[in-house]
Design a protein around this nucleic acid. Structure first.
Lengths: 238, 238
DNA sequence: CACGATAGGTGTACGCCGTACACCTGTCAA
DNA sequence: TTGACAGGTGTACGGCGTACACCTATCGTG
């Protein structure tokens, strides 16, 4: 209809177009719906055409990760290490909220992609510039773990779940059934305990952003204390 | 040969036998090799036979998680909250080292299994008994996140990788290639900076146990400080 | 202009996966 | 003796990733 054979061609495939379409598909339909066949169909092309641009599905996932990691804001220049690192981690977290599949995808992948290595490298650079010894910076990176990529790493993460299959938002915070509350009284107690929120369910209805920043600041403050003390591997604290 | 038709029957299937065989298979061959077909073959049975005991593969995974969570040591009775919680988390970590597939499996699952809820509930109980307000205990659980299940949550976790495909141990700490070191100088610097170890690769060759306890103690100490200060959601620290 | 190389899209096919569904068989209560 | 039923079997379907042979349009070179 809109295109004629011979002269008017559809816009050609490219690795970039494929990666972007894959991200859109995973965002919209969930990572479970991301198959080479579905992706090819979205691109109006036969599945095997993709393999001329990406080696296989694993490499496709790596490419998708690089795309979304590229969306993370760069480090604020000329800022203290703590606000700079903090802001960037929160930016990473926003990226993960846009791409709920990304957290699990990154964690499942075997090795670091260049984009992730670059991200981590600049993060270490900020620590070093902020006065951390190489020794302590090493342990800081381990201690922050995936949180440095904005992972909430919570026990039951609704957005993580959304990443598996489909849309992200609606899901109202269903109250936990009374027989569950009876079997797990301590969970029931803390479920309604958070005063920053009008009392609802553990892992749901909580103010995720608050919880993330609570843990993040706890770590950053503790690490800052170690830095000020001139901590080295030789010491153990407490 | 060893069994005759008619009188001598093989030991019958049961949900428990299936779950245990599945754990053994995932431990030995990696979670990727855990298919209903492979599992059935290990049990000397036809694939569909499994479905008389487990509803589907997702329920199988949930059951496997309950099995391994059941291996975590119970809380030390009559101990201070911090050593009790610390010891139990380290026990959970040992369980994860025995079952490298478990971390990703638990994180990928949608909802908590009863075994995990019971584990978490007793953990909250220890915090409450140790003097944490319900409010603070709530945030503690969020802040600890999956670390409370022993997750190392490191950026690139060799054992996590092992959980995907096959055996766990050998993998020597290969030195990082010089062109990588050149592109990511800060990573290269901290890779060799940890004095507790004879200088090797970031994420590999590090003393995982040390890093885990470093982060764990950082969090526990920070949380203890908040508890002593009578922290509530109304405050923010610093 | 002719032409061969080459990049890139196509079609078919294979072996794996989870699992629906109909079937068979041995056991045991009535 | 019988018939219900728990539990193992066989077949089949649709989906997956992807190997491999093929076709075709483009373009640099003679």
């Amino acid at each position: 209809m809109a295109e004629q054979a011979g002269t008017l061609r559809r816009t050609p495939l490219s690795r970039d177009r494929i990666l972007r379409a894959a991200v859109v598909l995973a965002d919209g339909a969930g990572i479970e719906s991301l198959s080479m066949r579905n992706l090819a169909q979205d691109l109006g092309v036969v599945p095997m055409a993709l393999y001329k641009h990406v080696a296989n599905k694993d490499e496709l996932l790596d490419g998708m990760i690089d795309v979304v990691v590229g969306e993370i804001d760069p480090l604020l220049p000329d800022a203290d290490w703590k606000p700079a690192v903090r802001a960037r981690i929160l930016s990473a977290r926003q990226m993960l909220r846009r791409h709920p599949w990304a957290a699990l995808a990154i964690e499942s992948r075997n090795m670091a992609t260049p984009a992730i290595l670059g991200y981590l490298d600049s993060m270490v650079g900020a620590l070093r510039a902020g006065g951390f010894s190489a020794d302590l910076a090493h342990h800081v990176m381990h201690a922050m773990g995936s949180r440095i990529l904005g992972f909430s790493q919570e026990l039951f993460d609704a957005s993580r779940r959304a990443g598996r299959s489909g849309v992200t938002e609606p899901e109202p915070p269903a109250p936990l059934p009374p027989e569950v509350a009876a079997r797990f009284p301590h969970l029931a107690e803390i479920a309604t305990a958070a005063s920053h929120d009008d009392g609802s369910v553990v892992g749901q209805g909580c103010d995720d952003q608050f919880e993330f920043e609570f843990a993040l600041d706890l770590l950053l403050d503790g690490l800052d204390r170690l830095r000020q003390q001139g901590w080295t591997s030789a010491h153990r604290f407490h």
